[in-house]
Design a protein around this nucleic acid. Structure first.
Lengths: 336, 336
DNA sequence: TTCCCCCATCGAAGCGCTTCGACGGTGATC
DNA sequence: GATCACCGTCGAAGCGCTTCGATGGGGGAA
């Protein structure tokens, strides 16, 4: 293994000079820097991560806690993770993957052992049991999603309430008067996952405000469940002409089901989804949707964390504004 | 921060004794060990990861390189990652997440900086550009998937060739004489991903051996593509009664398409898939399938790596035998 | 010319842990 | 009763890096 003293000797300087050249924490003359850089390249030097962490009390590693819960859409989680890794690398950090298996202990372990400098926690619940721990931990953290009581924490997410609102407003603008929301699987609401409930709130409040008839149905992530919900919706609201879907795997089956029940999309029925853009585009009928900006959430989360590590104050709440893209699945209300 | 000397003082022993009590590398009397453990708990001591890595030249971190390629089924990758993390924790290791963005440099960086002790590389291609690097790296690695030339590397995967074989044999046993393979998206074959090609080989060879008429069609992961392939299959092979699908998102649309073309599953047409069990079970018609044992591949990969770290010799190739579960989608060939 | 200051660099200390060799005490062996 | 071996513990060195204070030399101001 080639170490910093080897580089120093090769470049004819002291080890500390090499260190300063690398970190930029003290000025180094142009010429010396160039010599050092040449030596580093020539010898293939890489600073020893452990030694560096020990001496600087910075590991340059972030923890990413990913959810294993059922009912969440895995590709979105993955996109998000990838975006975190990419952004972290741009800030010269690596990412340690943590699952919930260990529970609080896992977080405490990596934080207390100085394995990581900071944490990103995904899939936060309204009354998340990890919150007290995160508040007391001496390492900064950023939550993806909002708990019921976010004070003292840094949170970021798509503004799901605004997303629910935007869907309804889109439909209202098209003249629809009777709308339904097909939601995530029941267990997602049962465990009080903030984002799912916020969509419901935004949806319902906005429908009320516009004087629309509305209803809400959780839905398992299977085609069979989609069919059942479709039938139920039409039974309960025969005048239904607009549907909002917040459940990725169910969008296509739902459209199928409605068409088999004799409704054409978008002629008789308009569909709006909250789902990743790539997905919305590749359905048989491209679906009007609010994107889930996983990549942006990921990189923003990392940036927040970097600021916190630099002791730069950051806002406690960051809500990303929803962006609705109109596609083929929504149209003006049919003149009955 | 509480350090090992604090624990030592509190327990009335020397720091090295605490270290040995923790690592078990030298015998410590029962009573001393108990006192030390009590002190550790009382003080809330956690060894500093960096210091430990520096002194022991072991970071207890594994790198997991995940693919970002298109056409792969994300939930499988995720399951696999989770299984790696879980198994790694059972061996007292953590997992660092790496994407391909950095290419070889990323691997070299984490290996040379001693950030990780070993690497797990997913989604290996037949002529993977990373292979030379992995061979020269002084850290052990395990590949998920087999390159064309696996000598000198440790590889593990489901035996996809046997999986293709097993599907055909299942259909042959049921009396089918004309079978088709609906494969992964074309780009997967274009980049010479080993596992996809192996399925084709197993499928084709076995069909030939049994004297079955057979054909193979790559297929994009969209319902529309599924429909096109279904029509094409029936056009080319009007006598078709058995289909093998190696493309998760397309299974359900394909069944829909066949039924719309007037074929009932399994009465007129038997379907066999290579996909995760949970998926196979939740289709409208539960599908006979060969499971993708992501969890087992993950934990076995970690175990191989641990052995290599302990300098225990391991086999170069580990092929997991396929396990076929018969479900409602396959039945004896209809008496025409 | 003299003094001062600042820039670039050096040397040493120390980060918290592991590990090696050493050592005292106990029990078994003759 | 002396010897030996071994068990349990200690002290010190060292892992590779960062960082702090110190230092020398060059340039500008007076």
């Amino acid at each position: 293994m080639v170490k910093i003293t080897d580089v120093a000797r090769h470049a004819g300087v002291s080890a500390s000079t090499v260190s300063y050249a690398l970190s930029g924490k003290r000025p180094i003359s142009e010429e010396t820097r160039r010599r050092i850089e040449a030596s580093i390249r020539e010898l293939g030097y890489r600073p020893h991560a452990g030694a560096r962490a020990l001496a600087s009390s910075r590991s340059n590693v972030l923890a990413l806690v990913i959810p294993l819960r059922t009912g969440i859409h895995v590709p979105v989680v993955m996109q998000f993770a990838v975006s975190v890794v990419t952004s972290a690398r741009q800030h010269d950090h690596d990412v340690l993957l943590l699952t919930q298996e260990e529970g609080d202990d896992g977080l405490r372990r990596v934080a207390d052992s100085a394995l990581v400098d900071a944490l990103i926690v995904m899939d936060v619940q309204l009354h998340d049991p990890r919150l007290p721990l995160l508040r007391t931990l001496d390492r900064p953290s950023v939550l993806i999603g909002f708990p019921a009581e976010p004070a003292g924490l840094t949170c970021i997410d798509l503004d799901f309430e605004a997303a629910g609102r935007a869907c309804v407003e889109h439909l209202a603008l098209l003249g629809h008067r009777c709308v339904g929301l097909v939601g995530s699987p029941p267990e997602v609401y049962a465990r009080e996952t903030g984002f799912a409930q916020r969509v419901v709130r935004g949806f319902t409040a906005t429908a009320d405000r516009h004087g629309l008839a509305s209803s809400f149905h959780p839905c398992e992530a299977t085609p069979a469940a989609a069919r059942r919900v479709a039938e139920q919706l039409l039974r309960e609201q025969p005048a239904l002409t607009g549907v909002v879907v917040h459940n990725e795997p169910v969008v296509e089956p739902l459209i199928e089901a409605f068409e088999q029940l004799g409704l054409r999309v978008p002629r008789d029925l308009s569909i709006t989804a909250i789902c990743p853009d790539e997905l919305a585009e590749q359905f048989r009928i491209p679906v009007t949707s609010i994107a889930i900006p996983s990549a942006e959430v990921g990189s923003r989360a990392v940036e927040l964390l970097m600021k916190k590590l630099d002791r730069v104050p950051v806002p406690e709440a960051t809500l990303l504004a929803p962006r609705l893209t109109a596609r083929a699945s929504s149209a003006p209300r049919p003149a009955h």
